[in-house]
């Protein structure tokens, strides 16, 4: 079996970290990959640090543990980096994508920064950044396609929420510089 690609998403309860993992899994499946999304088995309270995971592979994934050594880390909320080390277990050469205003660095790990809050406030009117981060992730990593993400969002949401999220994800895709 080819190696499984593992992604860890850090967020705060209510920011949609679990939804991020689920949408990524659905989009990757639409791209022709096998995928698996699971939440971290821990307390889920609004505002508290939460994690969710996504696995991508060419074959059906039977591994059913939590993710400990991810290849990619997505950070939905910059303030999390003050209280926890988001690089824990990150594999050598692992990539970080973080929602932050300025440029951020994590040692030797290649890091992509996107001001997702700004896009979210402008398009969604609320600081919900999960879909925006998926757009940025698609651009930065090419692990999922923008088309499949848009399709996955289209199935998950409806009405203006759907339209705005699709707009936001496309803008994040445009604005993220690889």
């Amino acid at each position: 079996m080819d190696k499984i690609t593992e992604i860890r998403i850090h967020g705060r309860g209510g920011q949609g970290a679990v939804t991020t993992a689920e949408l990524m899994a659905v989009a990757a499946f639409k791209d022709g990959k096998f995928s698996q999304a699971v939440p971290k088995f821990g307390p889920e309270r609004r505002g508290s640090p939460v994690e969710a995971y996504c696995r991508l592979a060419k074959e059906f994934i039977t591994l059913r543990t939590q993710v400990y050594e991810p290849d990619y880390v997505i950070v939905l909320d910059e303030s999390l980096t003050h209280s926890l080390d988001v690089t824990t277990g990150l594999r050598k050469g692992g990539v970080i994508l973080i929602n932050a205003e300025g440029k951020k660095g994590f040692g030797t790990f290649p890091t992509y920064t996107v001001d997702a809050n700004k896009i979210a406030m402008e398009i969604l009117g609320r600081p919900i950044v999960n879909t925006i981060m998926l757009g940025a992730f698609a651009k930065a990593t090419k692990l999922v396609t923008l088309e499949s993400l848009v399709e996955a969002i289209g199935e998950r949401f409806s009405g203006p929420v759907k339209e705005k999220n699709i707009l936001a994800i496309k803008r994040a895709y445009e604005e993220t510089k690889a």
Binding site: E22, V26, F34, V38, F41
Partner: peptide, 12 residues
Amino acid sequence: IDGFFLSHVYEP
């Protein structure tokens, strides 16, 4: 079915 491992999983 194992709670969380299977009840909360997204997979094909």
